[in-house]
Design a protein around this nucleic acid. Sequence first.
RNA 1: GGGUUCAUAGCUCAGUUGGUUAGAGCGCAUCCUUGACGUGGAUGAGGUCAGAGGUUCGAAUCCUCUUGAACCCACCA
Length: 877
Amino acid sequence: MSKAELATAYNPQEHEQLIYTTWEQAGFFNPDNLPLEHTEPFAIMMPPPNVTGVLHLGHALENALMDTMARFQRLRGKKVLLLPGTDHAAVATQARVEKNLIESGKHTNPRQELGREKLLEVIREYAENSKSHIITQIKRMGTSCDWDRLAYTFDEQRSQAVTTLFKKMYDDGLIYRGYRVVNWSVTGQSTCSDDELEYTERTAKMYTFKYSKDFPITIASTRPETKLGDTAVAVHPSDPRYQQYVGKTFTVDVGAQKPLTIKVIADPHVDRLLGTGALGVTPAHSHIDYELYESRKGTADEIALTQVIGEDGCMTEAAGSEYAGLTVEAAREKFVHYLRDNDLLEQEEEITQNVGTSDRFGDIVEVVPMTQWFVAVNKDIPGRNKTLKDLLREAVTTGHKGDNNQKVAITPDRFEKIYLHWIDNLRDWCISRQIWWGHRIPAWYPPQNSSTQTDSQPEIYVGTQPPADTWKQDADTLDTWFSSGAWTFSTLGWPAQTKDLTDFHPTQWMQMGHELVFFWMARMILMSTYALDQLPFHNVYIHGLLRDEHGRKFSKSLKNGIDPIELSDKYGTDALRMSLLIGISPGNDSKFYEEKVEHWRNTINKFWNIARYILMNVTEIKRIPNQPPAQTLADEWILAEFDQLITDTTEHFANYQFSLAGEKLYEFTWSKLADWYIEIAKVEKNKDEILLFILEKLLILWHPFTPFVTETIWKQFETNELLMVQAWPSTMHSQTIPATFTKIQTIITSLRNARAQAKAPPGKVIPATITTQDSTELVTNNQAIIEQLARVNLTISNQPYTGQHISCIEHDYELYIPVTDTVKQALDTVKQSLQNYIAALEKKLANEQFVAKAPKEVVTQEQQKLTEAQEKIAKMV
RNA sequence: GGGUUCAUAGCUCAGUUGGUUAGAGCGCAUCCUUGACGUGGAUGAGGUCAGAGGUUCGAAUCCUCUUGAACCCACCA
């Protein structure tokens, strides 16, 4: 093989594009093309980025995580499938496009002005653009995903899965159409689920008042205008203050056209100590009040429901003609005025409260009753004697179907608790949206029923095609998370029973940000355990959020966003990946700034130069399959260190401790291999085999993190194989790191230190003497190394030294170099700290308890430390 | 109201099941064009691990409380 010709500095721009193309052409991103020995499947489904725009740093982090894991597993011989995709992201995308249209000044109300088909076309075009951009970006990140299996939540295959799933759940009675209160975004003119609410704090006024003079109970509210829709007052069953009124119905005049009919009911959920201890019940505009209403339906205690706020966010006729058409704010003001004028207002108090706003449209969400589609989470699944909630719980507690081996392991495990708590509070999931961008609800109504939606039981047909042409499809679309929930199996061909499904489901590993635990992780568990009777994945790794250097979120409004592609251009993708992965721990947010990328660019360049040195200096570039024998102490040391590195790296990767794996690799490569062994190799010579052996395996170990630079260097070995499918190195486990080498290192460092203190010019060779009472063999054997690395001319003796020189003591050796005052001073400081150290150790060992109770090896260890320190100081005095 | 996480060198962060004289990077100081690398090399300064108690022979690590920061959840009437 010819000698290497490599540039003095690594330039990622020159190589990355080419390397990615090489990989794509080789076909190993597709598991079907992997060499036959890759048998055990390992699947990771990429969380599909929303087609709302370009990828940000968070996506870069996810790609780095997934690809590092995928490459590690592939190198370990797994049949790896990393399946890429994008998400149509229903509301998010439509909201974005509408916003763009309005901001561009072309439209003021895109839905009205364009109509359904035309608007959908605009959104589709936007989404397609965004998709191709995203795919380019994923490739830039080096992600080794199978482009043959590229999926989109809104493509035909996935739509079929969604329809099938919907029908299956409908037939099982788990999806129903019903009239219930929902969260309504007036701006978006659509429902949203509880999880799509973002709570923001604001100050509000709490009003304490009576409906009328002759009504005996005082209530409180921050939304007095909704009280026009009250139909009951709830009190605690054993509250003596109100017991006499329970069961009675009052007709109260609230100054509106129609008087209210208020029934006093008793309910144990009422907190006697909160507020006035009595709760004005507004079934139409509060989730909890609705439950009070629903649980009494059909009983003697039944209460009514009056909707006073409409879909337009204004008061309805039911609020009375004086109020109808007013905005809620205006109605509130008017009603409070009335209360004040009639002396009914007892108290006004400023409080801070959390209000739910729509995460996509931003407006405060109104609770209104409507006919919508829901997933019933508390209903028994036919033939399984379990509810969807039960399935959700089982997956992380007892294991699916009580099987401990079918358990989703969450890293870090604290998210288990958060997840379970979420299940406890979970209500039926509203899945219908009134936006247009999304999977159309596969339900059909006969022509005559189309306008009378509030009828309790309209005729419904659920399926792909209507029973007759005259039937009309439901106008609504599905919550985007309904399709995302099926992602782990819709991507593998379900509902068809494909080979992919058999091979790769349940998937092995999934990573996501903690904000998606409820939205997505939970929904995937729900869908998969329900539809496939399988877990969606065995392991979930939850990563934190990336923040800027000040700890703020990256956001458009703060304009603090950093484009990952720009960083990739400037520093290389490998450096970007490292900067994202090192220094993070599962579940915790981390700060990101450009200096990190710069540091890793430097590290990669260092690695490049290590390879360059080795490849340019060996007589022949060749692969060394087996560990070469050690000729010297240094050889023995580096081989043992390398063996340990393999063990550590493997373990850390397998435990998802990416940061630790990276730190170990970094430390070995720079601080051990480059700083010591290569420098020694220049003195000892003839180390071609060991250097090549280590380089080759080290390329493999780094490859999951830094695929581009490692594959580029690998080309110098001139094999026709690719690095990405080499075998992960195995360890010998039998090698111990020789402590004697550490002594040589310490001697060298000590001599360098002494030189620096003596102000000896770095290039100048100075005389030094080493004396020892023990054998001089170790020092003699490594004399050349010490002389070269410490730049000294060495005299070795086993006789006490008598000259006019200053000493420092390391292990059993006394080191002497020519005396200067600065060295004396430095030596005094060392002596002082050594004395403190000895004192601490003596105290510890004098403690009988310690000697009695601590494990023997710890005591011996401490004793040894003391002896060493004492000997050292004895020689210094 | 309930819950979670975090607090370690000037800055950003590691520190796996309690046993190191507590580590790294950046920054800082002194010095070095020794032909792999100045995107480099050598050496060094800098920390009572937020505070107070406790458990233990032994705590940055476990427990309790306090202080400060961030976040999640909830039917705050």
